[in-house]
Every structure is written in structure tokens, then in C-alpha cells.
């Protein structure tokens, strides 16, 4: 009699364990299926190389529309202190030998050989097949080695809690972030927000497109006007270059 009871209990425990395990694992399996619906990186094509040509002769010192558009698109707070994030900034230059003044926007230049990707210990910094350099916000441990390695000061560290956020790119305290080249817009076939704002302001100083596509405007422009890659001596081959420097 007592054996039978024990057997029942064993069966009950076995069934219950299987049911609990099933409940625990099943959602994970479903998530796994969803995650595999479109493989990561599937949207980016290695045949494409997104880039930008910034014409500093067209950029106006008084205009800050690219910065405002970026902040709006990504729901970033306007920068007030050295701990605030800045994905794009306006830089005012004065040539020391001639006094010539230049204004231009500066952001992540999406290097073909990005040092931030090389140094990142966790592979959180990565380059998409189409050349866009991003940070996997779920994998970044906040060591800031990429910020030490970037020659363009393109990256910011989130120093405070992000209390509300309405942008496409996840954000969070203690991680590093930078310009995403508005990959969410680009994947929809649109222009980055800064480029759109620049054109809307009537300057059209920022030309965005596929550097590999012979039919694109940027393809023709980089072959017809003298452009400069910043710190070309470092051999990082950035996808964003400048005219008028």
C-alpha cells in the first residue's frame, strides 16, 4: 500500500516537474523562433557601403538643425554639461595659417577599419555588413575603451539614468552610444535625420548614399570633387568624408 502511494507521489512529482519545466522553457523556445524569423544582420547587404560627403563650404555656422534633428529623432536631451551625450555636434574651425573659418557637423564617421570595434572586449561595438558602426546596447559593459580608442571623439557614455526614451535605438545608463547613421531610417529606404534637416534648411551640405553604387550621387561626387578623410594618416578609411577642409 505504502509502495503504491510512493509510486503515485513519484509519478506526480515527475509530471509536475515536467509541466513546470515546460512552462519555464516554452516561452524561451517561442522567443527563439521569433528571434530566428529574420536572422540578425540579414537586412544589411555587404554590397552596400553607406557613407556621407559633408561639404563644409555649404554648412552655415549659425545653423544647428542637424543637431536638433538628431536629438529629436533619437529622443536625446540637449547637451548642457560635459557628462551629457552628443551624437552629433557642430564644430567651428579657424585655419591657423590663413584665418579661414569653417563650420561643419561632426559625428561617428563609420570607419571601414573601426578602432572601437577592434578594442571592444565583448564585441558590443560592431560593424554592419553595409558599413554602419553600432553599439549592441545589451552587450556593452561600459568599459569606455572604445571612447579611448576613437580618434574622432564620436562616442558618449550615458552618465545618468534614462528615465524616458522614445527613440528606435535602446538607451541605458552605463553604456556607450554614438551616431547610428539612423540605421532604422536607412533600412526603410529613408535618409538620416540630420541629412534631411540640412536639406530642409536649404543648405544641402550633407550628401548621403551608397558609396558602392555607380548610380548614386555620392558615388559621382566623391569621384569629381576633392574630399578629405579626417586623420587619413591613421588608415581607418571612414565612410564619412569632407569637402572644403
Amino acid at each position: 500500500m505504502s509502495d503504491k502511494v510512493n509510486l503515485d507521489r513519484r509519478q506526480f512529482l515527475g509530471t509536475a516537474s515536467a509541466a513546470i519545466a515546460g512552462f519555464a522553457i516554452a516561452p524561451g523556445l517561442f522567443l527563439y523562433d521569433f528571434a530566428n524569423a529574420r536572422p540578425t544582420g540579414g537586412a544589411a547587404s555587404a554590397g552596400v557601403r553607406w557613407g556621407m560627403l559633408i561639404d563644409s563650404t555649404l554648412c552655415q555656422s549659425s545653423c544647428n538643425d542637424c543637431v536638433s534633428a538628431c536629438n529629436k529623432e533619437h529622443d536625446l536631451p540637449a547637451a548642457k554639461s560635459p557628462t551629457d551625450v552628443q551624437w552629433i555636434r557642430k564644430v567651428e574651425l579657424k585655419q591657423i595659417s590663413t584665418g579661414r573659418q569653417i563650420s561643419l557637423p561632426m559625428m561617428c564617421l563609420h570607419c571601414a577599419e573601426p578602432p572601437c570595434v577592434d578594442v571592444c572586449p565583448t564585441q558590443a561595438s560592431f560593424k554592419r555588413a553595409d558599413g554602419i558602426v553600432l553599439v549592441d546596447k545589451h552587450r556593452c559593459i561600459g568599459c569606455r575603451y572604445c571612447m579611448m580608442a576613437c580618434p574622432y571623439k564620436a562616442r558618449s557614455f550615458v552618465h545618468e539614468a534614462v528615465l524616458s526614451h522614445d527613440g528606435e535605438m535602446p538607451r541605458g545608463q552605463g553604456t556607450v552610444e554614438s551616431c547610428t547613421l539612423c540605421d532604422h531610417r536607412v533600412d526603410r529606404g529613408e535618409q538620416p535625420a540630420c541629412v534631411e534637416a540640412c536639406a530642409k534648411a536649404g543648405h544641402s551640405a550633407m550628401l548621403f548614399g551608397d558609396l558602392n553604387n555607380p548610380d548614386s550621387e555620392i558615388y559621382r561626387r566623391v569621384r569629381s570633387v576633392a574630399s578629405t578623410q579626417l586623420r587619413a594618416d591613421l588608415g581607418l578609411n571612414p565612410n564619412i568624408s569632407f569637402v572644403g577642409l
Partner: peptide, 25 residues
């Protein structure tokens, strides 16, 4: 001092062979 010390295990599970930080682990 990491921004996300809770994620330190990520450094052990996602090893980047070109990172000196990763070599040091």
C-alpha cells in the same frame, strides 16, 4: 567602475580576439 558591472559575465562569454582588454582577461 564599469558602467554595467552586472554584465561582467558578458566579457567572459563574448570574447573579441582583437581586443587587448579581452586578451587581459
Amino acid at each position: 567602475d564599469l558602467g554595467r558591472p552586472d554584465r561582467v559575465i558578458v566579457a567572459a562569454t563574448h570574447f573579441n580576439a582583437t581586443s587587448v582588454f579581452a586578451w587581459n582577461l
